[in-house]
């Protein structure tokens, strides 16, 4: 099958790959680029584990063709920590014990980051709404909701 070139920035650095046409962004990121932070849960758009941010918007990488991402800026959970220092959102997931097996965590963090980028002080309902496309098998969700609310408080304190 003919390979197609694809170029985008991933967490701030330029990536260029030749991929099979029809490759999902999820598979391109994991198997070609080597960023395994997006997880493949269902590969059909129902679990949210593969969530990434493309040009500021939350997207399911399992339903996105890599070749449609030319020229975009993609953010994944592995790009959040700067120099090994976790962002408040990541720290909040640790502090509230919002991770057990961790499989849903990168997707949850992506969903939460997009929420907080647009709505720095969300209500509980807004947090629930933002996470409602992501499935977690372990935590019962409450610790994840608390993580996002905790991160929002930490952000607003830093801003003040």
């Amino acid at each position: 099958m003919a390979k197609v070139p694809v170029q985008f920035t991933l967490n701030g650095s330029e990536k260029a790959e030749f991929i099979d046409s029809g490759t999902t962004l999820l598979n391109a990121l994991r198997d070609k680029v080597g960023d395994t932070s997006p997880k493949g849960g269902c590969h059909q758009g129902t679990c949210g584990a593969c969530s990434v941010i493309i040009d500021g918007e939350l997207r399911l990488s399992c339903l996105t063709l890599a070749e449609t991402c030319n020229g975009t800026a993609i953010t994944t959970t592995s790009g959040l920590a700067e120099g090994g220092v976790l962002q408040p959102l990541q720290r909040a997931f640790l502090d509230t014990f919002a991770t057990q097996c961790g499989f849903c965590t990168p997707g949850m963090i992506m969903a939460a980051k997009v929420l907080l980028d647009h709505t720095p002080n969300p209500s509980r309902d807004e947090v629930v709404e933002a996470l409602s496309g992501n499935i977690c098998r372990c935590t019962g969700y409450e610790p994840i909701i608390q993580a996002v609310l905790t991160a929002a408080r930490a952000n607003s304190q830093n801003a003040a």
Partner: peptide, 10 residues
């Protein structure tokens, strides 16, 4: 606590 919260939901 983490186990119990998740377990209660399950």
């Amino acid at each position: 606590e983490q186990q119990l919260v998740g377990g209660s939901w399950m």
